[in-house]
């Protein structure tokens, strides 16, 4: 009995440690990128509001709202829209994508099929678990990162979407080689969104 509680506590602690570590990774990005990606919010040529991206490490919220820069936007499914705000390769060998999803249905939407078709991931429910990065040049598909219990390193849309509601998301992937910086972000029946991976801080 107590053994099981200890095991559960250890697993929770480890998962939290991984999440927190990744939260720091995600939160630390998005600032001055040295001009490599002209669309970054810190570049003065962007007409977007001069709001500084949130740089404070948020302890338990890897879904740090990214800058309002739109790197890609696609519309599909039942008129839903998916916007990509940042695509950062970090030193740990992962790529973190952040963005927003807006419900295009004239009513409530629970994106259960967005968890994809892997049995390993089907406990994530309505989430970004079915997302992947497609490298057409290298002919590889990078599936969403998950822990060995099948939890995705991505946003779960608990409570679904109300009519017209928009939610932010993050999703993490193994990093393609640095020679493959142009990839497509794919999820469910949404059209692929062409994005470019930028280096993290």
């Amino acid at each position: 009995m107590s053994m099981r509680h200890t095991m559960k506590a250890r697993r929770a602690l480890t998962a939290a440690a991984i999440t927190t570590g990744l939260a720091f990774t995600v939160a630390g990005c998005g600032g001055d990128s040295g001009g490599q990606q002209p669309a970054q919010s810190s570049n003065s040529s962007t007409p977007a509001p001069a709001k500084q991206p949130d740089q404070k490490p948020k302890e338990n919220q890897p879904e740090t709202p990214a800058s309002d820069t739109v790197l890609a936007e696609v519309k599909g499914g039942q008129n839903h829209s998916l916007t990509i705000n940042s695509v950062i390769r970090d030193a740990g060998g992962f790529v973190t994508v952040t963005g927003k999803v807006r419900n295009g249905r004239p009513g409530v939407w629970v994106p259960n099929d967005w968890s994809g078709d892997e049995k390993e991931l089907n406990t994530n429910g309505a989430s970004m678990a079915g997302a992947s990065l497609v490298d057409k040049t290298g002919k590889k598909k990078y599936l969403v990162l998950r822990d060995t219990d099948g939890r995705c390193l991505c946003t779960k849309f608990t409570g679904g979407f109300k009519r017209d509601e928009e939610k932010t998301f993050f999703a993490q992937f193994p990093a393609p080689p640095t020679t493959s910086n142009k990839v497509d972000f794919q999820i469910a029946d949404m059209p692929p969104a062409s994005i470019e991976i930028t280096e993290g801080q």
Binding site: R10, R11, T14, A15, I18, V134, K136, K139, K140, K141, Y142, L143, L145, R146, D147, T148, D149, L153, P174
Partner: peptide, 12 residues
């Protein structure tokens, strides 16, 4: 102990 798993597939 929980670990992170990376999965990469051939496009086909």
């Amino acid at each position: 102990m929980v670990d992170i798993k990376s999965v990469v597939e051939d496009l086909g």
